[in-house]
């Protein structure tokens, strides 16, 4: 086999957690790697690099996406949200994060950011979902520790935490 050539760095401009970023990346660099190793946003984890485990799930343009199945260059002009952007600047946890803590929705914590980002777009409607609907909404995210019970409970009740806060 011939020796692969190293490709040139190219510029990509994107928004990550509200901050504009201009980066030089190799075309083949995965968005997951660039978020983690170039921007230091290591909350996005890498578990399989073939799109099945969901540990690397982020929001791209407000929708959940596998950051291991996107090249960083493809994020040109996109708004990316990662787990680091969830809590308030003063450290107050997002209702989803708070719910995960209350209901023991995490153990080792490796899959957790992916679950949080996957649940973020729909958690406000989770209260009204049937058990089966909620499980289906979270299928696509693997957790090896919790057996999902705490996660389901957390996603279901997060909006009630948001309401508690609203009333407080």
């Amino acid at each position: 086999m011939s020796v692969p050539v190293r490709s040139e760095l190219q510029r990509v401009t994107l928004t990550v957690n509200g901050a504009a970023q201009e980066l030089e990346v190799e075309p083949r660099w995965l968005l997951s790697d660039v978020l983690r190793h170039q921007l230091g946003l290591t909350g996005t984890h890498v578990g399989c690099e073939h799109g099945v485990c969901g540990c690397c799930t982020i929001l791209a343009g407000g929708r959940p996406a596998r950051s291991c199945l996107m090249f960083a260059l493809q994020a040109e002009g996109l708004e990316i949200q990662t787990v680091e952007g969830l809590a308030s600047a003063d450290g107050t946890l997002h209702p989803l994060q708070e719910a995960f803590r209350r209901h023991h929705g995490l153990q080792c914590g490796f899959c957790t950011p992916g679950f949080l980002m996957a649940a973020l777009p729909f958690y406000r409607t989770a209260e009204g979902m049937s058990d089966q609907e909620l499980r289906e909404a979270l299928a696509g995210q693997l957790c090896r520790c919790t057996g999902y019970a705490g996660i389901l409970q957390a996603v279901r009740t997060a909006s009630s935490i948001a309401r508690e806060r609203g009333q407080a």
Partner: peptide, 9 residues
């Protein structure tokens, strides 16, 4: 078809 995070892309 797969899951939400796949269908979104």
């Amino acid at each position: 078809v797969a899951h939400p995070a796949i269908r979104s892309r």
